[in-house]
Design a protein around this nucleic acid. Sequence first.
DNA 1: CTGTATCCTTAGGGATACTG
DNA 2: CAGTATCCCTAAGGATACAG
Lengths: 140, 140
Amino acid sequence: MADQYPSRSDCPINYALESFGDKWTLLIIRDLMFNAKQSFGELLTSPEKISTNILTDRLKSLEATGIISREVCADNRSKCVYSLTAKGRDLLPIMLEITQWSARHYKDVSTPAAFLKRLDEDKAGVIRQIKAMWDDQQKP
Amino acid sequence: MADQYPSRSDCPINYALESFGDKWTLLIIRDLMFNAKQSFGELLTSPEKISTNILTDRLKSLEATGIISREVCADNRSKCVYSLTAKGRDLLPIMLEITQWSARHYKDVSTPAAFLKRLDEDKAGVIRQIKAMWDDQQKP
DNA sequence: CTGTATCCTTAGGGATACTG
DNA sequence: CAGTATCCCTAAGGATACAG
């Protein structure tokens, strides 16, 4: 974030890093993608405890790079719904590979009963996500 | 890196972020994986211009988390060779997905003739890498 | 050449108060 | 509740000098 432009290089890996290569952005994407969160308050409740100013900043960056969209609720003006755009949903394969890599190697540092539980939750989210993409394709 | 422990959460995405979720680590992995670099000096030459203190720090972190290994040259004591461990090579699918995501969306921000060239270079590297993994499997 | 160490600036980010 | 703004501190990191 922040230093979106100018880019340090035109490398694809570097482009990705400049899009979501910080300690928080991918966690927000995770929550939108797998944990069915869509409001500011819901995003605040993650175990990693993001603070309000950082969340505001990252949501703006993500919107600026076209990874999420923000919609004001019709019924409640002071309520917003955040959701992944097509570009954001397209991060799914990356998220899956990362999850699987961690599943393969997390044991190196600790034994994670809770982690396996988490992974199961993520898998449930993946199904939800894939269904959403499928639904999306059914639209005109 | 830095804050390796304690971890913010036991989420797999968070584990990955704490392993390589900063602005530089993935670039080093890229160079080891796709660009056939293996020495400190070679790693310094990337277009993103990493500085020596940061490179030193990240190489140590990567070694600590078991993603790379460091070997002192037998013939030249003041020369080291850095290479990916199995855990590091296992990042290949993530790297490929990231590269492909960027290839699909980089146009959103600029038109990248040089980028396509880079991508071609990466593809060549991928072939090299896959061959290396294959060779690895042939060993006892 | 392979790093390490130091100096110094800026960005990241926690805590918290505040507004609609 | 949904954010914004401020205060302040720490970590990230650039530049550069230096050591083996």
